[in-house]
Simulated assay, not measured.
Amino acid sequence: MSLISPACRDALQLWLDTQRALAGRAENTITAYRTDVVEFMSFMTLHFGATQGLAPLARIGVPDMRAWMAQMRADGIGARSLARKLSAVKSFYRWLAEREGFEPTAVLSTRAPKFQRKLPRPLAEDAARAMIDTVELQSSKPWIAARDMAVVTLLYGCGLRISEALSLTGRAAPLPATLRIRGKGGKERLVPVIPVARAAVDTYLRLCPWPVEPETPLFRGARGGPLNARSIQAVMAKARMQLGLPATATPHAMRHSFATHLLEAGGDLRAIQELLGHASLSTTQAYTAVDTAHLMDVYNRSHPKA
């Protein structure tokens, strides 16, 4: 942060602490926020030719914002990434303006570049099941094979994010009929655990050579430490190559598949929203890949006309 004044550095740290404590942001989000805002303030330092204190930051205008965005695009930053960076900067400025008492209109009114949102590509039901079975065959060590199968089964059978599955501790074992999951933003939700998922985890626990204590990670790496998400990504990559599945067959695709297959089976959209931990129903809709006619039928059944 050498290009940033001490006052700006302190303000940024205070904002990040606030985001962590009050908004419940995940550490990965905090890291991304820090990187994006530091990058922005460093650009403004070079743009104006002097280290920017809090007062100069308050005087940033529309031309300055345009210059920053143009430089980001010139550096090869895509529209989606730039929109994310702008969102972080706006969030910081909204907080800073209220704290310092200045008008942040120039920053907050800056429009994010348009980009086409990529729709998720869930696996077909038979492909999802084949993925689980094939993942189990990737390791010659029975306990690792059982571990990988248990994790992927939780992703598909319970709709968990990979981070949520790997954050489970020994306190969750043996898995109950319902799990309390802390998701994004610290939001908690209750997720039913299907019998096959409980059985998969039980098998893994019987074979795991590492003691699973209440405070230790439920899923262990090969050397006994916490299991890294990259390990599951890698084993799924091997499995999808064997099955001839596209590169989109990732751990997160199993979560998409969970939502889509529930909806196809007649599940209620709002109930699926709760299971996934989405704040917005539109986000849940984007997670599903069903045809419009079926989606309208679900809407009509969920929201009957008087």
Rank of each mutant, 00 (worst) to 15 (best):
L14M: 06
W68H: 12
V191Q: 12
D297C: 02
R206V: 10
W68F: 15
E100Y: 08
E188M: 15
G24F: 14
T29H: 12
A293K: 10
L86P: 03
G277D: 08
Q71D: 12
H278M: 13
G170A: 15
L262W: 05
G24L: 05
P176K: 14
E274G: 05
R9S: 09
T29A: 12
R180T: 15
T134V: 14
A127V: 02
I132A: 00
Q71C: 11
R189W: 13
P226W: 03
A67Q: 03
M65K: 01
V235H: 08
A229V: 11
L205F: 00
T18D: 03
R147D: 09
A67V: 07
A97P: 03
T134R: 15
T110C: 06
V196T: 13
H252S: 04
W210Q: 05
T178E: 15
G224K: 10
K141P: 02
H252K: 05
A112T: 07
E274P: 04
M41N: 00
P174K: 04
R20C: 10
S81I: 02
S2M: 10
A97H: 00
G53A: 02
K90G: 13
Y287F: 04
A249C: 02
Y299Q: 03
I194Q: 14
V196M: 12
A145Q: 12
Q13E: 13
G157Y: 06
R161A: 02
G170M: 14
D291F: 00
A286R: 13
N300T: 14
S163W: 05
R171G: 15
T35W: 11
L160R: 02
A79R: 14
S87R: 05
S91E: 11
V135L: 06
G225C: 07
D202I: 05
S280T: 06
T250M: 09
A177K: 15
T153N: 06
A32P: 09
A130L: 11
L54D: 08
S163H: 07
S91P: 14
R198T: 02
L108A: 03
T248I: 01
P304S: 03
K118N: 05
K187A: 15
A279M: 09
R129E: 11
V135E: 00
H256F: 03
C8M: 04
S282T: 14
V89Q: 12
F102C: 08
K85M: 13
D297T: 11
G24H: 03
A165E: 12
